[in-house]
Design a protein around this nucleic acid. Structure first.
Lengths: 337, 337
DNA sequence: AAATTTTGCTCAAACGTTTTAGTTCTATTA
DNA sequence: TAATAGAACTAAAACGTTTGAGCAAAATTT
């Protein structure tokens, strides 16, 4: 069974390719194709199972009706939550999504953006990682519809939507201080992107504002990597040595390693140690005791990002401002006394 | 900054489009383009930032170097684990992946397959859901490289790789019976696909073989849907009414609802009730007590599926048989006494 | 010196669309 | 009755590639 083309239909109906194209694109009125003929064409098209060849359409029009979504890891929580909303919202406007994961790897990220470019995607949604700076700059310069999510490069002016990282961690610190925690640890990772910088800065500044001078030893930087064995171990050693009375984990996966470590040390929380995690996770609510978190408003993030992108795609002067920061929300559960 | 085409390069170098095309495709030797000219072309191409227009290439060659992966939900565990492996393996062979989620919705699934078809993807990997039968049959008839994952349609002969669902649940039942559980409940969903049928059949047959006649009331069919509130409630009512001494959850997300329900009822496991879940989840290992599971060998599943697909893409007579069933493995943790 | 082969390159068609600028009728108007 | 307007459709170029066929010039063989 061969692919059916406009030509095949034209031949079968006994008309020209152009006529078939016009009818199937709903332009019959504009071009005054008679209703009987239009009907016949539609009928044959349906019967033959005609599906336009998107390659040909794309080549001709330069449009693909596809949006590329580049994420760090496809198995990450953030991705799952984002992808679902983004896909649904864009579908409403006739766009499909291609997902790619950069694996937090500069080279791969670069290649992916090029790949999307080659495939003529109409718009880009990117969770940026280190090393993507140049490609993103190029896209912006070419005027491609582009919106960054979760982070951005301070040096490049691009539309972006992120969580209020500073405020979120700030709230967490204030919350813990109000609960009379004193020796508050901070576990973060080595991803050199703005969102992590902000979280760390918030920790340090808000601690001081609260009258506690955080020692350098209270901070633990865990390298970002696959696996997790090592990371959990690092956290275990850290907790053992520093013996904080509370810890803030700056990312949800770090919190999970943290819980493992705490189990291993046979510590109980909130009795022995208070913990609070930036970014919620299915595990945290189910765990007993449930973990207090600073919840990222991921659906809002996604919706806002889509709104911005759609505005750009439709060349409307954007109604939403091009850079948005959304408040995170502290959800008190049982991991803090 | 406009897109750079072969023409632009040809113009700049002062040669023909064909020559440029040959050189950039590494066919200079076959067509005897002189080394100096080839070098110059490559140089200009690099300097101008030439990237082939995949739409044009695809139109001409009918190939896209893209494989379509259709899953039920993109936020599901199975997807996350699968996608990661599939992407990595296919990348090694120069293929990229487009992910689509059918949302377990027949209409959407249909559309997605058509979309992929229109975009000329070279191969299809599909986690089939109800209602996709016709489209899958068509793909198979057209001889498109296709492999189904996790399930299949008994009526259509297609390559597929799945877990040994029957054996997995069988092991779970035998394990519980050996531990002297008697009133063993079974919670499953209403997805009318072969994998669920097999799990249910295994439960019923192995119970009988073990000398227990399972009452109809011991089975709970939970409708598949978003949200989860209702489902958790259904399970709660079920546990309250039936009071089983152990429950098998036929899918991991059902197990999660189950844990919630058990928490709500203030039951303790393994003391009050034993539970075992088909398909592992991050939550289950972290939970205290950790949940006994029948673990699906997802990476193997993915690797096998990719191997089969690649063989088809390369038109090699497949070395792996076209339909594979991989054993699941029972992992005893603390949710069973 | 003529015939043949080899080298180095180019022409042009084709892939399946979209779309502008027609063309051929028929119906209306002056 | 000739000019004009409208209706219904079509021809053909273009998008950027790939690729088999072809061609001129140089090198080699007879």
């Amino acid at each position: 069974m061969k692919n059916v083309s406009l030509k095949d239909i034209a031949l079968k109906v006994g008309t020209s390719i152009s006529t078939v194209s016009f009818v199937l694109n709903g332009k019959e009125k504009q071009v005054r194709i008679s209703e009987p003929l239009a009907k016949k064409i539609r009928e044959v098209a349906r019967k033959e199972g005609y599906l336009p060849n998107r390659m040909a359409v794309g080549l001709k029009t330069g449009k693909s009706n596809i949006v590329g979504l580049v994420v760090d890891t496809i198995s990450g929580r953030l991705f799952a939550a984002l992808a679902e909303v983004i896909e649904k919202e864009l579908d409403l406007h006739g766009y499909k999504v291609i997902y790619c994961s950069s694996g937090n790897n500069a080279k791969k990220g670069k290649e992916l953006i090029q790949l999307l470019y080659q495939h003529q995607v109409d718009g880009y949604m990117i969770i940026p990682t280190e090393g993507m700076e140049k490609e993103i700059c190029q896209l912006e310069q070419q005027g491609k519809p582009l919106v960054l999510i979760d982070s951005y490069f301070p040096k490049i002016k691009t539309a972006h939507v992120l969580v209020d990282n500073y405020g979120g961690i700030g709230d967490a610190v204030n919350f813990l201080i109000k609960k009379h925690y004193k020796k508050i640890g901070f576990v973060y990772n080595d991803v050199a992107m703005i969102q992590m910088d902000e979280r760390k800065r918030a920790y340090q500044e808000k601690m001081k504002e609260g009258g506690i001078k955080p020692l350098a030893a209270w901070l633990l930087k865990v390298p970002f990597a696959d696996g997790g064995e090592e990371q959990a171990l690092m956290i275990e050693m850290f907790l053992k040595k520093v013996q904080p009375d509370a810890v803030i984990f700056a990312a949800n996966y770090l919190g999970i390693y943290g819980i493992e470590a705490i189990h291993k040390l046979n510590l109980r929380f909130p009795a022995d140690i208070g913990i609070i995690c930036f970014d919620d996770h299915e595990v945290f609510n189910l765990h007993q005791p449930a973990i207090t978190v600073v919840k990222q408003p991921v659906p809002e993030l996604a919706k806002t990002a889509v709104a911005i992108l759609l505005a750009k795609l439709q060349k409307e002067p954007s109604t939403t401002p091009d850079t948005v920061e959304i408040k995170a929300k502290l959800i008190e559960r049982q991991s803090t006394r």
